[in-house]
Nucleic acid binder design. Sequence first.
DNA 1: AAATATACATAATTTTCTTATGCATAAAAA
DNA 2: TTTTTATGCATAAGAAAATTATGTATATTT
Lengths: 112, 112
Amino acid sequence: MGNQKLFKGSLQTIILKLLNENDKMYGYEITQKVKELTKGELKITEGALYPALHKLEADGLLYVEVAKVGNRLRKYYKLTENGTKETVNKLAEMQEFLKTMQHLVNPKFSLE
Amino acid sequence: MGNQKLFKGSLQTIILKLLNENDKMYGYEITQKVKELTKGELKITEGALYPALHKLEADGLLYVEVAKVGNRLRKYYKLTENGTKETVNKLAEMQEFLKTMQHLVNPKFSLE
DNA sequence: AAATATACATAATTTTCTTATGCATAAAAA
DNA sequence: TTTTTATGCATAAGAAAATTATGTATATTT
């Protein structure tokens, strides 16, 4: 409870950013990576993650490579060419938003 | 189109922050102030603003003072005592989120 | 006279989460 | 050895918070 720190709209960008850095990742790995990178502050829930991955795939930004590890199934996601382009856009947009918001709530510590 | 830069979940905090700085404001004034402060980058739509104000009021964080200016109605909003407390919390949460997100998407320019 | 700005509001719809649930294998702990 | 936790996928119901589209009305500018 009380862990909705993940502002709506940022999940797609986070996924794209991670895939841009790590070449290929599977869902569970993404949740762990985010937890690790944010020291537990951001927790991606499965109910948010998987639909987001499916949407990004449907939009042609990701594609899947299924792998069998041991006896278990893994779906590795990679950026498509278009996905790489969109990552640049989304990251720029996110930076802009962060800067704007930072300026709005705390003008003294602007990022500029 | 393409102007959904306002990440969902940040509107309440923005409203509270502005009221904390300006003592009393009315709806239209808030939309203009945000536009001004962000140089047109964030545009608060009325369909988002008014329901948000009503919710904050219902939650006891704001109260209203109706004023008649010329022949027109204005509803000035002010922070309640509880609203002031919540503003502190929400701003801290926002700072935390911005820092985390900044760190996530661009570790090199961390705010710390 | 017409268009734009000021000022409020709500309804329908969409997006994007949370929470709950389900299935299944692997590893660790009791 | 049994139970819990971790790994790994997925979807459905519901809630939250926007967007978009309207609606009403006055004031100002073109």
